Lab assay of single mutants.
Amino acid sequence: TEELDSELELPAGWEKIEDPVYGIYYVDHINRKTQYENPVLEAKRKKQLE
């Protein structure tokens, strides 16, 4: 659920942004990119696909 997503600790260099226009998204300051999917959940999903 969304509530559990926010409890996950983000990897180093990541920041969660709550924007009133664009909603919640994540900033990867190391690689200078943004995405809507939580990077922790993304990594778990990719691992399940292997």
Results as ranks from 00 to 15, higher is better:
residue 2 E to N: 15
residue 8 L to P: 07
residue 9 E to H: 11
residue 29 H to K: 09
residue 41 L to H: 14
residue 34 T to G: 03
residue 38 N to T: 05
residue 18 E to F: 07
residue 1 T to R: 15
residue 40 V to T: 14
residue 24 I to D: 04
residue 43 A to I: 11
residue 37 E to N: 13
residue 13 G to H: 02
residue 17 I to V: 15
residue 37 E to C: 06
residue 16 K to D: 01
residue 45 R to N: 05
residue 12 A to K: 10
residue 7 E to N: 08
residue 47 K to L: 13
residue 33 K to Q: 13
residue 26 Y to W: 07
residue 16 K to L: 03
residue 28 D to W: 00
residue 13 G to T: 00
residue 41 L to F: 15
residue 45 R to S: 12
residue 48 Q to Y: 10
residue 21 V to E: 15
residue 34 T to I: 03
residue 49 L to E: 15
residue 21 V to G: 06
residue 5 D to T: 15
residue 6 S to C: 03
residue 16 K to T: 03
residue 48 Q to S: 13
residue 25 Y to Q: 10
residue 24 I to M: 14
residue 15 E to D: 02
residue 43 A to H: 09
residue 42 E to A: 08
residue 39 P to A: 05
residue 36 Y to M: 15
residue 30 I to Y: 11
residue 50 E to T: 09
residue 41 L to G: 11
residue 17 I to G: 02
residue 18 E to L: 06
residue 27 V to W: 07
residue 46 K to R: 11
residue 44 K to D: 11
residue 22 Y to L: 14
residue 22 Y to D: 11
residue 27 V to A: 11
residue 32 R to V: 05
residue 13 G to I: 01
residue 40 V to F: 04
residue 37 E to T: 09
residue 6 S to Y: 11
residue 28 D to R: 00
residue 40 V to Q: 04
residue 15 E to G: 02
residue 32 R to Y: 00
residue 2 E to D: 06
residue 49 L to Q: 15
residue 22 Y to M: 05
residue 7 E to F: 07
residue 23 G to S: 01
residue 45 R to W: 05
residue 25 Y to D: 05
residue 12 A to N: 09
residue 46 K to A: 12
residue 13 G to R: 02
residue 14 W to T: 07
residue 31 N to M: 03
residue 32 R to T: 02
residue 33 K to A: 12
residue 39 P to F: 00
residue 50 E to G: 06
residue 5 D to H: 09
residue 50 E to W: 15
residue 20 P to L: 01
residue 47 K to Q: 14
residue 19 D to R: 00
residue 4 L to R: 15
residue 15 E to K: 05
residue 42 E to L: 07
residue 42 E to M: 06
residue 47 K to A: 11
residue 49 L to G: 11
residue 33 K to R: 13
residue 2 E to Y: 04
residue 1 T to N: 14
residue 2 E to V: 13
residue 29 H to T: 14
residue 35 Q to H: 02
residue 35 Q to S: 10
residue 48 Q to V: 10
residue 48 Q to E: 15
residue 5 D to G: 14
residue 11 P to A: 05
residue 6 S to V: 15
residue 38 N to K: 03
residue 31 N to D: 06
residue 22 Y to C: 12
residue 28 D to E: 01
residue 30 I to P: 08
residue 34 T to K: 08
residue 48 Q to P: 02
residue 4 L to H: 15
residue 22 Y to Q: 09
residue 45 R to Y: 06
residue 27 V to H: 06
residue 13 G to Q: 06
residue 37 E to V: 06
residue 14 W to H: 02
residue 35 Q to V: 09
residue 32 R to D: 15
residue 24 I to Q: 08
residue 49 L to K: 13
residue 47 K to W: 04
residue 4 L to S: 13
residue 30 I to V: 12
residue 32 R to E: 14
residue 21 V to S: 09
residue 40 V to H: 06
residue 48 Q to R: 08
residue 11 P to E: 05
residue 37 E to A: 09
residue 39 P to K: 00
residue 28 D to H: 01
residue 15 E to Q: 08
residue 26 Y to I: 00
residue 41 L to S: 13
residue 17 I to M: 12
residue 44 K to L: 12
residue 5 D to M: 04
residue 25 Y to T: 06
residue 26 Y to E: 08
residue 14 W to G: 03
residue 2 E to T: 15
residue 50 E to S: 06
residue 42 E to Q: 08
residue 22 Y to W: 09
residue 7 E to A: 14
residue 46 K to T: 05
residue 1 T to G: 10
residue 37 E to K: 06
residue 1 T to E: 15
residue 41 L to W: 10
residue 50 E to H: 01
residue 48 Q to K: 13
residue 1 T to I: 05
residue 8 L to G: 10
residue 10 L to R: 02
residue 44 K to V: 06
residue 45 R to H: 02
residue 32 R to I: 04
residue 18 E to A: 13
residue 49 L to D: 15
residue 26 Y to D: 07
residue 35 Q to P: 01
residue 40 V to M: 13
residue 29 H to M: 04
residue 44 K to E: 14
residue 46 K to L: 10
residue 30 I to L: 11
residue 23 G to V: 00
residue 6 S to T: 15
residue 22 Y to P: 07
residue 5 D to N: 15
residue 47 K to F: 07
residue 29 H to Q: 03
residue 14 W to D: 02
residue 46 K to I: 11
residue 10 L to P: 04
residue 37 E to G: 08
residue 48 Q to G: 08
residue 24 I to G: 08
residue 38 N to C: 01
residue 43 A to S: 11
residue 1 T to M: 12
residue 30 I to D: 03
residue 28 D to Q: 00
residue 39 P to W: 00
residue 21 V to P: 06
residue 13 G to P: 04
residue 6 S to N: 09
residue 27 V to R: 12
residue 41 L to A: 14
residue 36 Y to S: 11
residue 29 H to P: 03
residue 8 L to T: 11
residue 36 Y to I: 09
residue 36 Y to K: 12
residue 21 V to M: 03
residue 49 L to T: 13
residue 2 E to P: 06
residue 25 Y to K: 14
residue 31 N to W: 00
residue 33 K to V: 13
residue 26 Y to N: 02
residue 28 D to S: 01
residue 2 E to M: 07
residue 45 R to F: 07
residue 26 Y to M: 02
residue 18 E to Q: 01
residue 10 L to Q: 06
residue 17 I to H: 07
residue 38 N to P: 03
residue 1 T to D: 00
residue 46 K to G: 11
residue 6 S to E: 09
residue 10 L to E: 01
residue 46 K to Q: 13
residue 15 E to P: 00
residue 16 K to Y: 00
residue 14 W to F: 03
residue 12 A to L: 13
residue 21 V to A: 15
residue 10 L to Y: 02
residue 49 L to F: 05
residue 39 P to H: 00
residue 44 K to R: 12
residue 31 N to Y: 01
residue 30 I to N: 04
residue 16 K to E: 05
residue 17 I to P: 00
residue 26 Y to R: 02
residue 43 A to T: 14
residue 8 L to V: 06
residue 1 T to Y: 09
residue 31 N to L: 05
residue 49 L to C: 15
residue 46 K to P: 12
residue 30 I to R: 10
residue 18 E to I: 08
residue 33 K to W: 05
residue 38 N to D: 09
residue 6 S to Q: 12
residue 30 I to K: 11
residue 12 A to T: 10
residue 46 K to E: 07
residue 4 L to E: 07
residue 19 D to L: 00
residue 5 D to W: 06
residue 15 E to A: 05
residue 27 V to T: 07
residue 40 V to P: 04
residue 49 L to V: 10
residue 2 E to R: 11
residue 6 S to L: 12
residue 47 K to V: 14
residue 50 E to Y: 01
residue 31 N to P: 01
residue 43 A to F: 05
residue 30 I to S: 06
residue 40 V to E: 07
residue 14 W to E: 04
residue 42 E to V: 10
residue 42 E to W: 07
residue 19 D to M: 00
residue 24 I to R: 08
residue 30 I to T: 07
residue 45 R to A: 08
residue 17 I to N: 02
residue 32 R to L: 10
residue 38 N to Q: 04
residue 8 L to R: 11
residue 47 K to Y: 08
residue 2 E to S: 09
residue 29 H to R: 08
residue 10 L to K: 01
residue 23 G to T: 00
residue 15 E to I: 01
residue 2 E to A: 09
residue 42 E to R: 02
residue 7 E to C: 15
residue 34 T to D: 04
residue 47 K to R: 09
residue 8 L to Q: 13
residue 36 Y to V: 11
residue 21 V to D: 06
residue 35 Q to L: 04
residue 41 L to Y: 13
residue 19 D to T: 04
residue 32 R to A: 07
residue 13 G to W: 04
residue 12 A to E: 15
residue 27 V to S: 06
residue 12 A to D: 11
residue 43 A to G: 10
residue 17 I to K: 14
residue 8 L to W: 10
residue 8 L to K: 15
residue 1 T to S: 14
residue 22 Y to F: 10
residue 9 E to D: 13
residue 38 N to F: 12
residue 36 Y to W: 11
residue 24 I to V: 12
residue 10 L to M: 06
